[in-house]
Amino acid sequence: MRYFLLGFVLLCVLVVSVAGFRGSTSRKPPIEVFPDMDRQLKLRPQTDASFFEDGRSSRLHVPGTVARGSHFEGTPFNTGLIPGTTNGVDVIPVPVTRQMMQRGQERFQISCLPCHGALGDGNGITKKYGMAVVANLHDARIVKLPDGEIFNVITYGRGLMGAYGSNVTVEDRWAIIAYVRALQRSRLASVNDVPAEMQSMFKK
């Protein structure tokens, strides 16, 4: 009995020392204890797929085709252009609502804030780390850009700014533009934009 107990304790110590405790860091993929149907013959997104020549399980867009549910007509809403020209439309082709404005604020803060800053003045956090030339969205030239032009800056990028077409949906791009316009307006406003009865608060 003594030997049994000794053996038992030794075995326990051995198992614990080899297998370790829960939550210890491991570089190896987890063991799947009952692997029966854990991995099936289907493709998961963004994994290597030797079936295809380029090894991508998420297929790239085939030229000349349109994905289901995506926008394709050449309307100003989808392209930001005046049909038949390469000029941007002057104003956002959909009615601007309060909801859209809030959506625009949220999306601006996700996608544009790291570089252009919360105020749109080009002083985002990345400036400290070597992002030297970020446009100030209050620049007179950019204030005068037609809305459709900004739409295309977001979609395809411009100069040193990369494209955000694949990260920001068409609807969200217009919402962001609405918000950018509101930001610009906030800097351009004069005392005369304030309701008459409140103007005295700003005039000393």
């Binding site: 997104p45 963004q46 990345t126 780390y129 070597g130 030297a132 030339v133 700014m161 694949s166 990260n167």
Partner: peptide
Amino acid sequence: WYSNIPAASTCMNCHNQVAK
């Protein structure tokens, strides 16, 4: 359902200037 891992172009939007 799937939370994508960003494409390299998303990284390059910053890293064409930062730590380039």
